[in-house]
Write a protein that binds this DNA or RNA. Structure first.
Lengths: 266, 266
DNA sequence: TAGTGGTCTAGACCACGTT
DNA sequence: ACGTGGTCTAGACCACTAT
């Protein structure tokens, strides 16, 4: 087999109902280190995103697609499956694989407020109010799986956008995991710092609630006492199951809401 | 090959470091209509959940596991992969596949408040306040993809647990999709009714926020005016991309919070 | 160097839904 | 009856990690 890119285009045009994908050029490069199924998945995703594959259109059957690309059917299936898992495609037996009509924006992920604001073009700013250690309370110790009273790193930050305060973030980390400089914390998000320190984030458990602001909280966030606040507690685990961070945050409900997309378990 | 169940047990006991899974009896039944990979996935999941495979333990390599079960490696991989996707297992090249330490409870799913309360043993009750139609507002029309003013079904329910009100749920549905009897709505959740009407729920977009209760809302939910409320707006789509429901709900923050687990995109 | 998961192939048969 | 995706096999080679 060739080691050069293989292009798939429509063959002889039949007279009726050819899948849209038949007119698209998908290319795989066998000399690339990127897996073939992933190359195809990226191209399919891009074609969907840019409207070259319109919502509801059929993808063409897997065997034929595989033949056109010079790939095996399992490889093509792997590419398609990854997009089905993302919610971009739907498979129907006896029918084929279709592009989903509604636009899935992004699945719920472990997002950092910093990244959320960045993405929304809000130019976030962070002021570090605390960066030291203290003996853990019962709540923090339970969340991090430490003994009550064990020393933990405490970080308190005020996050704002457009000069307006948005949230007060309080994080607790087990000691010795990470060196956190105040300057770094003001320049980027906590999760980025953790990832670049080699920590593999794996899962998180979170609770979103609401309550009224105390006088102090109102002063910090530029709200009146009694104003509605969104609250979030989140414990994050790495891939070995260690709790690597516990956060207890408050957000100004008048200026922030949690917004996300999710897929139905099937 | 045999059409009868195949059992895999530990062979001769070696002297050192055998994976725990070697001592477990996994069985596949080739005469069952349940896919082989799924049978194995269920058994692995059960073994993890019941502690027969302890956190951090290795699963044993895929080739050997396949051999013991009389399955091919891709089939075993498919089973393992489904649990990796659920966050129960972690693969490491050169090491093996390990059980994750932390207990993943449940991924975020399109949950109904009714089911949530049921699961928590709270014996939910529903009182239907409205079940009729009205011309859609701009907000509702936009969410459902209808023309403003088009007639929509409106359902308003008060959901309580232990005799205490928990939430006021307002749902809007496009006409002609579903026949909703008040008696059914008081006996079960909306999503169950939609599913049993043959609607395949696919994805949802939701926003969670907070605000203070108005006087009327306070009266409905047994809270004071100005009390903090959690709010949620959710648009649900079926697998053809149609919006099938828009909800605008309020929850007593003093008695309810959203609680869920999520996996990190890798 | 040895062992693991990651990727890939070229077939096969089946279940389901449409026609 | 036909075409689709769903499942499954028995191999292969590669990349990464540990020792």
């Amino acid at each position: 087999m060739s080691d050069f890119p293989v292009t798939a285009t429509a063959g002889y045009s039949p007279h009726v109902s050819k899948p849209e994908s038949a007119s698209l050029d998908f290319v795989v490069d066998r000399s690339s280190p990127v897996p073939l199924y992933y190359q195809l998945a990226l191209q399919l995703e891009s074609a969907i995103e840019h409207g070259r594959l319109s919502p509801g259109s059929l993808l063409g059957n897997e065997i034929e697609l595989a033949g056109r690309l010079g790939l095996s059917r399992p490889t093509v299936r792997q590419a398609i499956q990854s997009l089905v898992d993302k919610g971009l495609l739907v498979r129907r037996r006896g029918i084929g694989t279709q592009v989903v009509h509604s636009q899935i924006k992004r699945p719920l992920e472990l997002s950092s407020l910093y990244d959320d604001l960045l993405e929304a073009g809000q130019s976030p700013a962070t002021r570090v109010l605390r960066n030291d250690t203290e003996p853990s309370s019962a709540e923090v110790a339970a969340a991090l799986g430490l003994a009550e009273g064990a020393e933990v790193i405490v970080i308190e930050r005020l996050r704002s956008a457009h000069g307006e305060p948005m949230a007060r973030l309080r994080n607790y980390l087990p000691p010795g995991l990470l060196q956190l400089e105040t300057a770094q914390l003001e320049a980027t998000g906590l999760y980025r710092l953790m990832r670049s320190a080699g920590i593999t984030l794996h899962s998180a458990r979170q609770t979103i609630g609401a309550r009224s602001a105390t006088t102090d909280e109102g002063a910090q966030l530029d709200e009146c006492e009694g104003a509605a606040l969104l609250t979030m507690q989140r414990t994050t685990y790495d891939d070995t199951g260690r709790a690597v961070e516990y956060g207890s945050h408050i957000y100004r409900a008048s200026r922030y809401a949690f917004d996300f997309q999710l897929l139905v378990r099937s």
